[in-house]
Write a protein that binds this DNA or RNA. Sequence first.
DNA 1: TTGTATGCGTTATCAC
DNA 2: GTGATAACGCATACAA
Lengths: 345, 345
Amino acid sequence: MNTTPKRKRSSGATVTTVQVAEAAGVSVATVSRFLTGVTRVSEAKREAIEAAIAQLDFKPNLLAASLKRGRSMTIGVLTQDVNSPFFTETVLGVEAALDGSGYEPLITSVHWNPKEEAERIRRLIARRVDGVIVLSGRLAEPALRRLAQQVPIVATGRQFKTSASPLRGLRLDNEAGGYLATRHLLELGHRQIAHIEGWPGTCDAAERLAGYRRALQEFGVDFDPHLVTSGNFSESGGLLAMNRLLDSGRSFTAVFAANDQTAYGARLALYRRGVRVPEDLALVGFDDLPASLYTTPPLTTVRQPMFEVGKLAAQTLLQLIEGGPAQPQMPTLSLMVRETTSRLR
Amino acid sequence: MNTTPKRKRSSGATVTTVQVAEAAGVSVATVSRFLTGVTRVSEAKREAIEAAIAQLDFKPNLLAASLKRGRSMTIGVLTQDVNSPFFTETVLGVEAALDGSGYEPLITSVHWNPKEEAERIRRLIARRVDGVIVLSGRLAEPALRRLAQQVPIVATGRQFKTSASPLRGLRLDNEAGGYLATRHLLELGHRQIAHIEGWPGTCDAAERLAGYRRALQEFGVDFDPHLVTSGNFSESGGLLAMNRLLDSGRSFTAVFAANDQTAYGARLALYRRGVRVPEDLALVGFDDLPASLYTTPPLTTVRQPMFEVGKLAAQTLLQLIEGGPAQPQMPTLSLMVRETTSRLR
DNA sequence: TTGTATGCGTTATCAC
DNA sequence: GTGATAACGCATACAA
């Protein structure tokens, strides 16, 4: 130990259970019992301890407790982008589910970087989190499975082969969402429906496209590859894609964008060119971000119940930690009909 | 200890430095030195330790290290709403500043609730975080100052009387922002300029209003209280306020909204009534949220450099932790002229 | 450079 | 119900 007392807070040295015990005239064990509530403590000692704690301004050290217990009562939450409503809404759901459970979330963001993702999980494990929730992770399944041997993991937006290891995937039916969006347009009379894809190569993008194709087929509309152009789930991607579509010379009366952000970008491209929505062109998004209620006009979109997904992820993880079975039932997608779609005239 | 081994991971019992030391044929101290890098270790032992670590799949326990060191190398970040771009952008700045410093952020959200805020900080202290960053906190100064005696705290969106305790406030000049927004409208020829206030009673709201009044005065325009109506920094508040303004019968050609979200709501009210922006009415926001680049049309707004604020907050906190002086220089606000404002015709 | 011994603050085991 | 005491896993003062 240093002789100089390492710059402590004003109150001087840290006060520990030992000092509380001394001041209260009991043993540390009793103080600990009082704190954890695991065993009954007599009324007299209880009061003495309470007084001592108040007088000394004692704050229990969770670090020490966690070390001893072997559990930290924290769960790590990895988000790709703290700046995206899509993720933050899920985090809200996680927080809601954890509230009152005794567990606390430890949120970090990894910026869509799989290497950073693995590194973060390792550091969380080093911190001895009791479980990890990965939102829309990009880490390969084998790597994830290896990590799951050290700590239970629940990942959203993914599916895994087996549920042997404490690893669960929570995946919404994106194909059904794409189908819902496209069918809505078809029902409104549209037949020339373009699609701005999501990030090429991702499951989400592929499944939404598949749903789009299934709806077309169901209505007897031929699939036209020229009406499909790729985006990247971002506003700028949507803007560029919309411009490409407009410049292609193909005619179309509706657009299904792979997500809301893509739709926002597409909307701006249309505004710039004086194309009215929905009079000249119908537009449907995917996600139902909070902002979609206040776009001009409010966006028709497929609602992803991310709050519920977050809640479910946390509940599933808790079950995994307790050693339960954990076979979660996924919520379903729904269509939010607003003002960017109207009957074809 | 339980006789049942408390459900350990597949690899069996946790592997510690002791076992690594045994396997490598050295002492625990040497293993520790290898891990921390505080002292040189001979090449031979170093290799032996590395081999042992790899073979045993050893993961250092940060909890134990933190307990021993008295520092956890984590800093707590309190955000009011993980779901708001305003906060999440600040968090990004914090992460950027912390990156490479050895410290890791521990993010939690407290939903604008001062009681929860205090409780969260206490729990963070229990976890022995080395510092706390509070984003737009609502906790009263005395309470905050008391907590700051236990751990250094940096709070954004606030100012404090003295800098005696390890507590710093980081506040942007909101008055200057309100002035900037209003002057822009005045320069475009507008004279009847309405204002939708922020949350009544908050500093931010009051200062932005003050800036609005100063600009009016500077241009010799009388302040008309009927052109000011209160909002609450949210979309729905902006929508309601805009409707009130429109229904009041007063004439005005421009609106300065207290923040971007308010402007989004106002924009929707205008769309619903067929009022064109900016042809019929100019609109200015405050914050420059990422979404404001993609509204229809893109929103003219006052940019709050929240990323920089987050960075500055983290840097200031780090200095506080090291015991430095820490008198941060705040960045300034700027106007982002986009497409919701035009010259009065 | 390396090893020994001790302690960080708490919880859990055991005997009373 | 209560009190000694031994861990939890790691870092460091000290001696070598």
